[in-house]
Design a protein around this nucleic acid. Structure first.
Lengths: 230, 230
DNA sequence: CGAAGAAATTAGCTGTAACTAATACCCGTG
DNA sequence: CACGGGTATTAGTTACAGCTAATTTCTTCG
């Protein structure tokens, strides 16, 4: 019974690798190149670090660079997600910073806030279950409810839904969505899909919002139960 | 008018050196050895880093290792002091952490909190002018009122005073002082000084507190104006 | 004055985590 | 089956910031 609470000793780099691995990989393995791209480092750097992480039993290495988190690695990664989301919530709710703009700060702080401070912040925020972008916050044991969301762009014409999550890391686009009312909790209705030019006409809070398809990538919605596409 | 706000680019180490230099040096120069001791690094490391800091015009090097902050270095150091004290205030006032125990967390965070977040925290705390230990907080331009305080142990028998500052970095002793009521704002009276064994008998909040001399090093008081040693 | 001892510096290493350039490996296509 | 292109790896560097051991430089005291 040595218990998981021992670490907080991983270097910042390691924590970042694990977090990206988790977020890119879900369960399956991830390639060197995709990691390199997401982390903004060169491929050899990744090969290198993965070897170290494998030695430390945080990732499992498959053939041709495919890397996969071990249980320990996953635990560590989820802990980082938890920290990130609690901190974002704090930055918005308590410090009053802008929703669309807190990612970078949380990204730094998640590596440096002590457990003590994190718990105090969590308490202060009322143990939130979602961050300001609608992402669920894992509990202290890394548990996370699942929920079935779909991309906004996948709605059929006439279908209604509620916005649930906005992917962060892209302050620019997020600010635009926020402007248009695409925020967690907003009710939307897909008015029209123009397959020809890949443009969507979406109704949000009564007014229309027209957008190119990939411009609303990252807005995840929960479709209304069927039948009421009035 | 390029304005001072450019940096926030100094490495954590550099920031630490400058801070210690400031706090150890006041105005005058500081030796390699004292820096090494305070920073917990070896003397050669200090020589080395001082050379770099000198190159970057943050310190001026005199003979035999004596180092002195330049104006730029001082500005940077005071900025760190400001950050540290605002963060301590926040940790205590907002997060409800223990007074005697926030130094370490502030020490880490001061290097990683962005200007934006710092300003938001400062606002949230109501732009405090003192931290929880009674230290004055420099304003955004590094200005700091001066005030004349003396060590508690320097009071003459019968003299009254108000506790103004408790030096942090020594959680253990601070907790004991707090226990005894030696906190900023507390009124004290020196009952007796027993030169023979270097022991002080101090009255704080009505009850007595007996202490060896150096055990109250770090408690700074503002003596009451003379004459009322009733 | 000269030697002892303290203080500072030089020299040479270590570990972390990046980088570029060169090379090796695989896979699908012709 | 060989080859070209993409992917991964190896080799060799770099910067930072620390370290120990050895040496130099002051200062002080006998």
């Amino acid at each position: 019974m040595v218990s998981a609470r021992a670490s907080r000793a991983l270097s910042r780099s390691r924590q970042d690798y694990l977090k990206v691995l988790h977020d890119l990989g879900g369960e399956g393995p991830v390639t060197v190149t995709s990691l390199a791209r997401r982390l903004g480092v060169s491929a050899p750097s990744v090969t290198n670090m993965l070897a170290r992480l494998a030695e430390e039993k945080l990732v499992r290495l498959h053939h041709r660079g495919a890397a996969q988190l071990t249980a320990a690695g996953t635990r560590e990664a989820i802990e980082m997600v938890r920290r990130h989301r609690i901190l974002e919530t704090f930055l918005v709710q308590v410090l009053g910073l802008d929703w669309a703009d807190v990612h970078a700060d949380a990204e730094v702080l998640e590596h440096h806030v002590s457990d003590r401070v994190l718990e105090a912040i969590d308490r202060l925020c009322g143990h939130p279950s979602e961050d300001p972008h609608g992402h669920l916050i894992p509990d202290r044991d890394g548990r996370l409810e699942r929920r079935a969301l779909v991309p906004l762009a996948s709605l059929r014409p006439g279908q209604r839904a509620v916005v649930r999550e906005i992917r962060d890391r892209e302050a620019r686009r997020m600010a635009r969505w926020k402007q248009a009312g695409l925020v967690p909790g907003a009710e939307v209705r897909m008015r029209d899909v123009r397959e020809s030019d890949g443009v969507f006409e979406i109704e949000v809070g009564g007014s229309a919002f027209v957008s190119a398809g990939e411009a609303v990538d990252g807005v995840l919605v929960q479709p209304a139960r069927e039948g009421n596409d009035s």
